[in-house]
Design a protein around this nucleic acid. Structure first.
Lengths: 140, 140
DNA sequence: CTAAACCCTCGAGTATACTCTAGGGCAAGC
DNA sequence: GCTTGCCCTAGAGTATACTCGAGGGTTTAG
């Protein structure tokens, strides 16, 4: 049993356009075609597409995902390269997670300010301070 | 005391190009100019740019950041709108954090497979299973 | 057999966010 | 006063990732 591109779009949440685009970009070299030239996706293909989505969701670029898929297609000889690629990606993702966490805390701090009972008074004071900055002598 | 665009670029990690681009996009309406038409950034401006970076780092689009800045420039009357805008953004960021976390766990699972002592044997079995899928009769 | 609903490719178009170049003005030191 | 370094704008170019339209085959239900 295989799935049509429409069925895969529904299962994955990717659009048909995106699936064809990914195929064109070399992300889906494992997908077979039937006699009419239609893509026929297997369960195994869906698992690989799921992996592609994990990489995409964590911000990996298409060219890097293609590199990973190329390694997968090359068989067990490339397991070490795959491990290195994913480990390097993992490091970037963790760093990005940290940056998001820190930025989110600052946003939460702003939200707390906006939600405070004396929000208007607090923010008025900041505006006063900022206006003073603008009245200072300008360099040059 | 004010800062030149080059100094702000160094302090923020944004490029001079990006700062000018943000200004052009309406993200820096608070930045004053000196007699020569040069941008003169105050400490208060730097704090606002820092906020812009927090929003950008958490994936907010420039048009939405502009909306936020417009609210800020409009004064204390827009505190409620700012709160709503940041709250909505916060929800999206938390959802994205969750998606990244889940995807990262799957990547970690793959990494564990690649690092296992019998990695080659495990992956060979998966390849066998995938090849069987491809030999099944194709729909249509 | 034909209409509706699929599928295909190719190439153009869109969205987002920069990034750079050209041409020209301003400021400070020698 | 001239060179060096910094600043400006406007507009073109780049990168990334889709998204869509045109033109044309395929499949299935009636």
């Amino acid at each position: 049993m295989t799935y049509s591109i429409k069925e895969v779009a529904q299962k994955t949440g990717l659009s048909i356009y995106t699936l064809r685009f990914y195929d064109q970009q070399g992300l889906l070299p494992f997908v077979q075609r039937n006699a009419a030239g239609y893509r026929a996706f297997t369960e195994g293909d869906l698992r690989l597409i799921h992996t592609i989505c994990c990489l995409k969701n964590t911000g990996m670029k298409i060219t890097d995902i293609r590199q990973y898929i190329d390694y997968v297609m090359a068989g067990t000889a490339t397991i070490e390269q795959r491990r290195e690629l994913l480990t390097a990606h993992r490091r970037k993702v963790v760093a990005k997670q940290h940056q998001i966490e820190v930025s989110l805390q600052e946003i939460d701090y702003k939200l707390a300010t906006y939600s405070a009972p004396d929000a208007v008074a607090q923010i008025s004071r900041k505006i006063e301070a900022a206006l003073e900055d603008h009245q200072l002598p300008v360099k040059r």
